[in-house]
Design a protein around this nucleic acid. Structure first.
Length: 268
DNA sequence: GCTGCATGATGAA
DNA sequence: TCATCCTGCAGCA
């Protein structure tokens, strides 16, 4: 489920296992054969995340850039393991004790520091990054002040905010009570501040939990967050036809730029 | 066994 | 706006 929280969590957990180690690297599928060979036997200095992008920095200065896209998946195992290596495995690397298996990424390529910077430069503020050179809310206001696209489209644009995907966009707009079709330029700064604050809060929760949970226990009839069932984790994503957890109105769905959005016409 | 869809992004038209 | 790339799995025959 690759939205920004998944990527940052992957960086954090993979650093624990692989940072500072020499890795054996290969591409069983073959499509990353040259790149994998280039970092084979090299020390992996560190892994970091920006928005939905991952960067594996090696001691030689080579950087492996990974973007999971819609389908990409990691499988990480302690060695030895029975876990099979898929013929679709794009990148496989291991130390003596641990193995990473990557299949289905949109991007998996060796780049240099300049190329990494240019990828990072074109991303908007990332809610899971602590320090920002400019005030993120001002940045949002600047980028959206002349845009007539719906706010629901705007916050999926990685140049606006880096890391939100289709689940978070629906849930965040629900939580702040904003109609997804509102033209971006008409969204006031108080709402932009709320979009940012909710992005930080929810992605942080998601990064810790390893899954997206946006509901408050009271709204799903439970007392503790840990008791929230799978079917109760979200307010509107994929809940069309079902009653809103807060007001009972029926959740609706529509298409914005080829992606589905869900919302409650009363709450939003 | 096949079809279609999905939490993403890009490049051409 | 459309086609394309990437994988896995639910739903259906």
């Amino acid at each position: 489920m690759p939205e920004g929280h998944t990527i940052h969590r992957a960086a954090r957990l993979q650093n624990k296992r692989f940072r500072g180690h020499e890795v054996q690297s290969e591409s069983p599928q073959g499509r990353f054969a040259t790149g994998a060979a280039q970092v084979d036997g090299i020390e992996l200095s560190k892994i970091h995340a920006n928005g939905k992008h991952l960067f594996y920095e090696f001691a030689t200065g080579d950087i492996v850039h990974v973007h999971l896209g819609l389908f990409g998946k990691f499988r990480i195992r302690s060695l030895p393991t029975d876990d099979p290596i898929s013929p679709n495995c794009r990148w496989l690397f291991s130390t003596e004790t641990d193995r990473l298996h990557l299949a289905g990424p949109t991007a998996c390529e060796v780049i240099d520091a300049d190329q990494m910077d240019s990828i990072r430069d074109r991303l908007g503020p990332d809610p899971l990054v602590k320090k920002h050179p400019d005030d993120p809310v001002e940045k949002l206001a600047q980028r959206l002040s002349r845009r007539s696209i719906p706010i629901g489209a705007a916050i999926l644009d990685q140049k606006v905010i880096a890391g939100l995907g289709n689940v978070y966009r629906a849930e965040i707009l629900y939580l702040i009570g904003l109609d997804p079709f509102t033209p971006a330029k008409e969204v006031g700064e108080e709402y932009l501040a709320q979009i940012w604050a909710e992005s930080v809060r929810l992605l942080t929760l998601g990064e810790k939990a390893g899954r997206i949970v946006t509901t408050e226990p009271g709204d799903v009839g439970r007392r503790r967050r840990s008791d929230i069932k799978r079917s109760e984790r979200l307010y509107c994503y994929k809940r069309d036809g079902q009653p809103c957890r807060r007001c009972g109105d029926i959740i609706r769905t529509a298409d914005i730029d080829g992606r589905n959005i869900w919302w409650c016409p009363t709450e939003q």
